[in-house]
């Protein structure tokens, strides 16, 4: 048995989702998302909970969750910053943005600040190449980045 439990809202959502797919195996990704929104990350305990709901093993869920880069298998900062490192952004000066972010936050890519406020990572093309260089800040996109724009955003957080 796991310690983790869905919130009341998520329990209702789960029952709704069951009706929407021909097989409940399809719920794997949606349930992982629900856990991540509820807790900020996905613990082994939560994987046991999901496995229980879907009638599979926690190891299966672990193997699936680890395939997808957006699932946090360890806690992340309150603000999750993901900068695009792919070609269009690179051509438009993402290198400078990336260096600046690391310097300003005092962490390297893949790291979280000690106070758990910021996590910084590099990601592949976000589909925002028209506003390169681009990054995402939690669920939102920010494009046409400049050093000044980043400073302004971070100052306000």
């Amino acid at each position: 048995m796991s310690e983790f439990k869905f919130s009341k809202q998520n329990k209702e959502k789960y029952n709704e989702l069951l009706k929407k797919y021909p097989n409940k195996a399809s719920l794997t990704l949606p349930l992982l998302w629900m856990v991540q929104y509820q807790e900020g990350w996905i613990s082994e305990d939560a994987m046991i909970y999901i496995a229980d709901k879907l009638g599979t093993s926690a190891m299966d869920i672990q193997s699936i969750a680890s395939f997808y880069t957006m699932f946090n298998l360890k806690p992340v900062g309150k603000y999750n910053i993901q900068v695009c490192k792919t070609l269009s952004c690179k051509l438009c000066g993402s290198e400078k943005i990336r260096t600046h972010l690391q310097n300003r936050l005092g962490i390297k890519f893949g790291e979280t600040t000690k106070d758990m406020k910021f996590t910084l990572s590099e990601v592949e093309c976000l589909g925002a190449c028209g506003e390169a260089p681009a990054m995402s800040l939690n669920d939102d996109y920010v494009g046409d980045l400049t050093v000044e724009k980043i400073d302004k955003i971070l100052d306000e957080l």
């Binding site: 929407k20 797919y21 399809s26 990704l29 949606p30 992982l32 998302w33 395939f67 997808y68 880069t69 957006m70 699932f71 990601v123 592949e124």
Partner: peptide, 12 residues
């Protein structure tokens, strides 16, 4: 007809 939006999770 029913439509469901299903989110991926970062895998090209």
């Amino acid at each position: 007809l029913d439509i469901v939006v299903h989110r991926g999770a970062g895998a090209y």
